[in-house]
Design a protein around this nucleic acid. Structure first.
Lengths: 245, 245
DNA sequence: AAGTGGTCTAGACCACTAT
DNA sequence: TAGTGGTCTAGACCACTTT
């Protein structure tokens, strides 16, 4: 039998078993909707411990290939559009490559919060807040526009250099050393307005992504909100479903 | 000590420990970047097995709260914008609620594939493919437009009723009983064109999501491609970061 | 060398589901 | 009642990192 787990292999046993199961699913040995053999049967078949089998099946479960049903069995999942997950991985590379990226501060000042901002930051309308507007450039070309409001705390002055030097999204970790506890984001399709059009060098009305956010401190009080306007070609939102090996 | 694991609790031990660690992180006992106690120390401290501790820490790791570094320790992760994950969960409810949703077939016919489609489906240019265009309505209102091409297989005739009756995204599972092995999706911001504007009842140029896809069969050959145009209010793309308990 | 996480075992009992 | 997955134990050895 080819499907055997080798001890002393560079791959751990659970990964080997996961690969075998992945292959068997790909080959149609277990078609979508079908039940795969029980954990104890697999454990005996391959001569490995039950916990190791569970680790392999757990892996394929988070990959979306299998589904466990207590008391019944483990089943092969069919492809479902709604299982797709998109992440901001393409931004990660940009944020972590200081060589080619540059941040330009457009505005950093104290302003009176408008109705909506005050409400987002749980402040009385007209309270003073910090307005921060920046442009992120990649290879000299603007690709992201950021506009954000931050709670103004007189005890913690904002140092421009601090915001300038830190990573682009660093106010997520507060300014002056504070840290965010949680954040809420929303992704929407948007059209470039006139101002953004000028800043990002694209025609008015061009389609872009907008990421709106609110971040909260460790007392669950909102301390920052705003949005990022991102040119779609610099933020590839891709997802994969099923068996890609 | 309050932080103690109760056996015979309705919550399993690993979930109790995860909740305790979550709380301690929230309270700043372990600030972002800090190391939490080692697994063996936790194991002794709470009188539970090492495997159970690992299960709890594994849970918080996939939640994005902790990060394991082999040979060094487990650390509290700071909030990072780029860790955000958006899913199509809001579509799930729509697809699985046949009471309020309705599918209207606009077109189902054999056409000659254009250059791009032929290339996506790995067919010679001008090959015959099935064109399927549909509208999904929710409470009588159109919210998603789907336009897709499917490989034409003379041996497997397409039955309109089949496509009409199945769930909206069911061609993912092929037609005539075939099944998809994998799929690749891409999310982009787009503007409504004139045709879509008429179908979806929104002005031309309104911002929408577009989900482009290619699905592959079990021989890794592409058998379907196309896109969904989705009104943004019916597809809320939300993500949460950090500690929400 | 000591400490950390990564893997693994050979059992055990439980909750749930089907028959 | 039998079979399934869910949880848990008390060990073990390994790979890796730091000192």
């Amino acid at each position: 039998m080819l499907k055997r787990i080798k001890k002393d292999h560079f791959e751990p046993a659970y990964a080997q078993l996961a690969a075998i199961l992945r292959r068997e699913i790909a080959e149609g040995v277990y078609p979508p909707g079908e039940k795969i053999p029980s954990e104890s049967i697999i454990s005996k078949e391959y001569g490995i411990s039950l916990m190791t089998v569970r680790q392999a099946i757990g892996l394929l479960t988070v990959e979306g290939l299998l589904e466990r049903v207590q008391g019944t069995g483990t089943f092969v999942k069919a492809l479902e559009l709604t299982e797709s997950r998109f992440d901001l991985g393409s931004l990660r590379k940009i944020f972590k490559d200081p060589e080619r990226t540059q941040v330009k501060i457009l505005q950093l000042c104290l302003v009176r919060a408008d109705e909506e901002t005050a409400s987002s930051l749980a402040l009385p309308s007209g309270a003073r807040v910090i307005l921060l507007r920046r442009l992120l450039l990649r290879d000299e070309r603007p690709i992201i526009f950021h506009s954000g409001y931050i709670r103004y705390e007189p005890t913690r002055p904002v140092v421009e250099a601090e915001l300038n030097l830190g990573p682009f999204c660093d106010f997520f970790n507060g300014y002056g050393g504070g840290t965010a506890k949680k954040g809420e984001l929303s992704l929407v399709p948007e059209l470039l307005n006139e101002e953004e059009s000028g800043l990002l060098g694209r025609p008015v009305g061009a389609p872009v992504f907008r990421i709106e956010y609110v971040v909260y401190d460790f007392d669950d009080a909102p301390f920052g909100c705003g949005w990022f306007t991102v040119l779609p070609e610099s933020m590839k939102m891709k997802a994969r479903l099923g068996l890609w090996q």
